[in-house]
Each structure stands twice: as C-alpha cells, then as structure tokens.
Design a binder for these strands. Structure first.
Ligand SMILES: [Zn+2]
Ligand SMILES: [Zn+2]
Ligand SMILES: [Zn+2]
Ligand SMILES: [Zn+2]
Lengths: 132, 132
DNA sequence: GTATTTTTGCAACACTGTCGCAAAAAATGA
DNA sequence: TCATTTTTTGCGACAGTGTTGCAAAAATAC
C-alpha cells in the first residue's frame, strides 16, 4: 500500500514529513535508524518528528523496531506478524528481516510466559560474501 | 572460577575495580548494565573503568553483551559458548540466559554466513508470573 | 625498592532519544 | 472557500549512554 493509503487507514494526519518518512521505509527492505532517515531526507524534517513518527508507526504495527547489539534502534516495514529472524551483516552493516527463515518452536521452562521475540543473527550477507 | 583466577588466566592486571566488577558478575545470573554495576559498587570505581572492564571481559569471552530492545547494553558471565536464548521479563526487568532452552537449528538462505546469534524472548518470568 | 607498564579518574565529547511549548499545518464543517 | 478546532512540527533543553585523551596512580617486573 502507498504511504498516503497507510496513513489514511490508521487515521493519522497526512503531513509532509510523515509521507516522506513512510515512503523511505516502504522503498527498502533494509532497516533504517533515525539517523539514516534524516540523511535520506536532508532538511525535510526535524529529528524529533522522525522519532515521533517512528514511534507512532510502531504502535500502529506498520513498522517494527529491531534490537541489535549496537545502541541505535532500526525500523523496518512489518510484512508478517509472526516471529521471524533478523540478520545483521557485519560487513555492510545492513539489517533485514529474513521472512523465509522460520525459527523453530522454542519451549520455555515452566512458568515463563512469552509475549514477543527478537531473533538476531549476525554474520555476512549474501552480497558481501561474494566479494570476499 | 574466582575473579582473581579469571583475571590471571587472561593476563589482566588485578586491580581493585576489576576484581569487584567481576565478583558482581560472577555472583548473579542476571545480566547487568554499567549503571547497575555502578550502583552495586557505589564509589568503588569510575564509569569509564566499568565500561573499559566490560569491554575487555567481553573481548576475552568471559562475559557477553545482550542486545535488548532498550538502549542499554547488559552483560552476563558466559557459561556456554553455544547459541542460547535470552529472556527479558517486562515485569521485573531482569534479563537472563536460558541455558536449558535450545534454539532449533536455523537454516539461512544460500550465501549468508552466520557468525553469532542473539535470541531474545520478551515476556513474564516464572517468579513474576506467580504473583499475577 | 625502583623502573616500567598498565590502568584509573576526570573532564570533555558525540550521540540517541524524549519532552514542553509556541508556531505552523492539517482537518473539520458550514 | 474560509474560519475554527485539532494535530503536528520545530526548536531548544535535557538526561542518559558510551568513548577518548591525558596526567596521576596503581600494578607488575626486576
Ligand atoms: Zn553485507
Ligand atoms: Zn523484522
Ligand atoms: Zn520477572
Ligand atoms: Zn547469554
């Protein structure tokens, strides 16, 4: 769906900044940080607006936040609601959802209740592996 | 092994701060942040020393860093070198390694090379689940 | 114990993420 | 369309995390 379409669906005001941010996110399958979005949108909108938009879109379930070992959060369009694995390439730094790869069903010890999960695999992506 | 023993093994100078930091880490199976260590070691050593010690111990493989959704890194003694799952309780905030739980073998698409993994499950821990 | 090497504390710094508030933009609806 | 109401923005300030250079202090080596 288009950026405007998504904003309409979730009854969010269609401001210039939000449309541009969402378009960037829709146009890639690589997770982006606030910083990376700001660089791509040079001068379009403020840091605070990007953070606020990312938070709003996360709450609506349009995008999701990926926890990596670093200190910056990265966001990517949510394609599937199910558990899935994220891959971070140490060479190019790109983080992406691995939609085809399914994590085995994990059995927790008695008494533990699972709410959500975050599986991250760190390594070399297919593109970077070719140039080794 | 003891704190001093570990420092000897890895040929690290046995300073007061390092011994105390390592003792704290050895005395719990809950992952600790720099902040939490500082509170437990009130006035024993500087922030910078804690960060430097955590980095050194991670590089030696004595402890490992856990990526959570939040912004702070947490560290815990490394008990096993294999892949394992981490659990974060949304109620008490504690993060721990689940040594008994084995993640199924995950098959990556062709060309991707795995180096390490970070599996985090977020939910309610056994202790907190009892008091619900 | 003295000399050498390593580590520490401190201050400064860059960066991430949040918030209050007045100004600006978007939505509403006649 | 235009005036009114509601929402969002930009800005500045702020708190927190993690890093670094450097002189002083501590640990190690002899
Ligand atoms: Zn790559
Ligand atoms: Zn994902
Ligand atoms: Zn708990
Ligand atoms: Zn662990």
């Amino acid at each position: 769906m288009s950026a405007i379409g998504i904003l309409s669906e979730y009854k969010m005001s269609k401001t210039n900044g939000r449309v541009k941010i969402l378009k960037e996110l829709l146009g890639t399958d690589i997770a982006l940080s606030e910083r990376e979005l700001q660089m791509r949108l040079e001068g379009i909108c403020d840091r605070a607006t990007i953070y606020r938009t990312l938070k709003a879109l996360s709450q609506k379930g349009v995008i999701h936040k990926i926890a990596t070992e670093g200190t910056v959060a990265k966001f990517v369009i949510k394609k599937t609601p199910e558990d899935h694995i994220h891959f971070k390439c140490t060479d190019c730094g790109k983080v992406r959802c691995m939609t085809g790869v399914v994590p085995g069903n994990i059995e927790l010890p008695k008494g533990f209740i699972k709410k959500e999960s975050n599986y991250l695999i760190i390594g070399i992506c297919d593109v970077c592996a070719k140039n080794l």
